[in-house]
Design a protein around this nucleic acid. Structure first.
Length: 195
DNA sequence: ATACAGATTGCCT
DNA sequence: GGCAATCTGTATG
């Protein structure tokens, strides 16, 4: 499996100027914050506007995926199988449907709140391991679809400057049936919190 | 109008 | 390992 180092990028606007696969790689290590909860992103996937049949934007804009066409830095939250929510960071310029799916994270603070939402019996490792679990743990739903992630209750923040860059494993995306060969999944090699 | 598939998860055998 | 849950969009009649 090919590896690389997560690029160190200091601000969200700077991050979002990059091509979507690079955004996906660089987001590993970033903090996702919702209220008092802070988690470290350890696994992401890129979904592209061109040549990617698995992307929700592949068939054009619909009511469900409209947020994917917003300006970069917005949230695209959708419901999968009518059951679980998944959170994406919108990346490409407004009108172009590209996004990065946040697939797994390591809990940092707000542990009790995560356990409250996920259930008392859930192991630490499983609190945010998987896109549906991540959204459940953070209390994210369609109500958060289309929100900006620059500031406010729900936001992204860069890793502390003294934190070492993550070594990334690059491979095919999980759980898709179309365009399954593209190497658009990025996960922290050392983390035990990936899916 | 009905049928089916899907960027998932948890419970069942 | 199998399968149900149950929303949204697409394909087909």
């Amino acid at each position: 499996m090919p590896t690389t180092m997560a690029p160190r990028i200091r601000t969200l606007p700077e991050l979002l100027r990059r091509p979507t696969p690079e955004v996906a790689a660089a987001l590993v290590g970033w903090r996702l914050i919702h209220g008092a909860v802070v988690v470290r992103i350890v696994e992401t996937e890129a979904y592209l506007a061109q040549g990617d049949a698995a992307s929700h934007s592949a068939c054009g804009r619909t009511n469900r995926n409209a947020a994917m066409f917003l300006a970069p830095g917005h949230a695209y939250v959708y419901l999968i199988y009518g059951v679980h929510h998944c959170l994406n960071v919108v990346t490409a310029p407004e009108g172009v449907g590209e996004a990065v799916l946040l697939r797994a994270a390591e809990p940092l603070t707000g542990h009790s709140e995560l356990v409250l939402r996920r259930g008392a019996g859930v192991r630490e490792r499983d609190l945010c391991r998987g896109p549906g679990r991540l959204c459940q743990a953070l209390g994210l739903t369609r109500a958060h679809d289309g929100r900006a992630l620059f500031a406010g209750e729900l936001r992204l923040e860069p890793p502390p400057t003294d934190e070492p860059r993550a070594e990334l494993l690059i491979g095919p995306r999980v759980g898709i049936t179309k365009s399954a060969e593209l190497p658009l999944r990025f996960r922290a090699a050392r983390s035990r919190f990936t899916s």
